[in-house]
């Protein structure tokens, strides 16, 4: 294998490992450690989706920083969301939900300045978030994610996350968890 192909395999693997480890922290409810993986200037955005006529794809998603979204967060509000769960009296998450994050189809989209010396990486993946709470209440949320990761020391930070949920009317009563 040529050097740059090998570098690409290694980087893709490294990115996937990071995303799995991040999911592990969420599923194990290690929220403070999860927050530590988010860049201070993170943008965490989940647009809403419309049913539009073929050929009008540009209107399918609500516009970033202009329209309403399901989520449009920075680190401060993500931290507040974690703190809310940690009050122990956030009734929508008390008792806490059982959540499993599946991350798959990890694709390396771009590496800057280079694959061999990547300081920032754009990656796409699929997610499946399973939530079960109280007795039998169950949600299944499936979609795509576009992440930008930034090198920080030996590891990575999430600098941007676009979450594309494959639903129109949200079929869950609330979104008290992270993607």
């Amino acid at each position: 294998m040529s050097d740059d192909r090998l570098a690409r395999v290694l980087l893709t693997h490294e990115v996937a490992e990071f995303l799995y480890a991040e999911a592990e922290l969420l599923d194990e409810r290690h929220y403070d450690e999860w927050l530590a993986l988010l860049a201070d200037d993170i943008r965490y955005w989940m647009p809403m989706r419309r049913n539009v006529k073929y050929g009008e794809a540009a209107r399918e998603f609500t516009r970033e920083q202009a329209d309403i979204a399901w989520f449009d967060e920075g680190k401060e509000t993500l931290t507040r969301r974690v703190r809310q769960i940690q009050t122990g009296i956030h009734w929508a998450e008390e008792p806490q939900s059982r959540i499993a994050h599946f991350v798959s189809n990890v694709q390396l989209i771009e590496a800057t300045p280079s694959v061999a010396d990547a300081q920032e990486v754009a990656a796409k993946c699929r997610f499946l978030v399973y939530r079960n709470r109280v007795e039998t209440e169950t949600d299944l949320l499936i979609g795509k994610r576009e992440d930008t990761l930034r090198r920080s020391g030996n590891g990575w930070l999430v600098a941007r996350r676009k979450i594309i949920l494959d639903q129109n009317v949200l079929m869950s009563k609330n979104l008290t968890f992270f993607f």
């Binding site: 647009p47 809403m48 609500t62 516009r63 202009a66 329209d67 309403i68 979204a69 399901w70 129109n168 009317v169 949200l170 079929m171 869950s172 009563k173």
Partner: peptide, 11 residues
């Protein structure tokens, strides 16, 4: 009106 209407289900 801001763009985008939130629609969701509550049991």
């Amino acid at each position: 009106l801001l763009g985008g209407v939130q629609k969701w289900l509550i049991p």
